[in-house]
């Protein structure tokens, strides 16, 4: 029973914490940061990002290839060369998203 005199203090802190989070005094400032991580960590967000990165690189590569073909009159060749390069660039973009962070960053 003598332990109980020491007990109320932490339990009071605990109850205060519960009451505060219940009233929304503590929880809201913390939750959005933890839930979303750096770039909206939900599966949906990550999926959308990966898709956009892949397609964006490919679009740029096709545009460059097509444009250069137009300039040099070599119609299919440069587009064909640039499409795999664009795919590689897209995969590199995705790799950058998930790559383990370098120590200096």
């Amino acid at each position: 029973m003598s332990q109980d005199t020491g007990g109320p203090d932490p339990s009071f802190e605990e109850r205060l914490k519960v009451a505060r989070s219940k009233q929304g005094l503590d929880a809201p400032p913390k939750r959005p940061l933890n839930d979303q991580g750096e770039l909206g960590g939900s599966a949906w967000g990550i999926g959308a990002r990966v898709g956009v990165e892949l397609v964006a690189a490919l679009v740029v590569a096709v545009a460059i290839g097509y444009g250069l073909d137009h300039v040099f009159h070599t119609t299919p060749i440069l587009t064909v060369v640039f499409v795999p390069l664009g795919g590689a660039a897209g995969i590199m973009n995705v790799w950058r998203l998930f790559a383990p962070k370098k120590s200096d960053r």
């Binding site: 956009v52 990165e53 397609v55 690189a57 679009v59 740029v60 590199m92």
Partner: peptide, 17 residues
Amino acid sequence: TIEVISYLSRIISLSVR
């Protein structure tokens, strides 16, 4: 070449997202 494409693709990915 791949890096330049990757760099340019930022314009597209940023706006399209």
